[in-house]
Design a binder for these strands. Structure first.
Length: 201
DNA sequence: TGAATGATCACG
DNA sequence: GTGATCATTCAT
């Protein structure tokens, strides 16, 4: 853990590429968050791409607004927003500054800080282990990610994505339509690690 | 399946 | 200002 904590974040250049490429490359990477006295690490297993042009399901479709401006701030910027009045969703912006594209983190496997994640989830009855981070709202709740993270770069010492040394082949990556949207249902922009027990659906 | 709960944005 | 919508989750 100590080594992982000290390992370098992926550089901004990693995110300043084609959104679908970045989305797939994020699978198997580590998301590290240090907040107050808590430290969390998890492995990303499911993401969704939201494109900068011609994607009606993307928050950026009608241009920049106060809420979505982090999507336009260039690859590596966090875009965090409140959904349904209850939960936060966390994205990482992709491509160049000015392009409103991002990748949503939908599910992850816990690697460190498991017990505190469980506590943060505030469930009446704890769910199955595999469901701890199996959805965008669960993931942010467990890791304590809220609106204060919006606009932050993913290259901070206390908020970063790191390489876990895992190499995925194309055949290990599945794709499907994105979840919970009403538009552009035919686009297959959800990507996940096949057979992972930690997926959202 | 339905309820909870509030920010956001397109209207005009 | 108003109202529909919403990249969700949990418990029934």
């Amino acid at each position: 853990m100590k080594l992982l904590e000290q390992s370098s974040p992926l550089p901004l250049k990693f995110y300043q590429r084609d959104t679908v490429t970045v989305a797939k490359d994020l699978l198997g990477k580590g998301l590290y968050v240090r907040k107050n006295r808590s430290r969390f690490l998890c492995e990303i297993v499911e993401v969704e791409a939201y494109l900068g042009h011609g994607d009606p399901a993307s928050h950026s479709f009608r241009g920049m607004t106060p809420r979505n401006q982090s999507m336009f701030e260039g690859g590596g910027t966090a875009y965090v927003y409140l959904i349904y009045g209850f939960y936060f969703c966390v994205n990482v912006a992709t491509e160049e500054k000015g392009v409103g594209a991002a990748v949503l983190f939908r599910a992850a496997a816990p690697l460190f800080g498991h017990k505190e994640m469980q506590r943060n989830r505030k469930l009446k009855e704890p769910h199955r282990h595999e469901k701890l981070l199996s959805g965008p709202g669960k993931l942010t709740q467990a890791l304590g990610i809220d609106r204060s993270f919006d606009g932050k770069k993913f290259t901070s010492t206390d908020f970063k994505i790191i390489d876990l040394g895992k190499v995925l082949s194309e055949s290990e990556i599945g794709s499907s339509p994105r979840v919970g949207i009403s538009k552009a249902k035919s686009k297959h922009l959800r990507f996940f690690i096949k057979n992972s027990p930690w997926l959202s659906r």
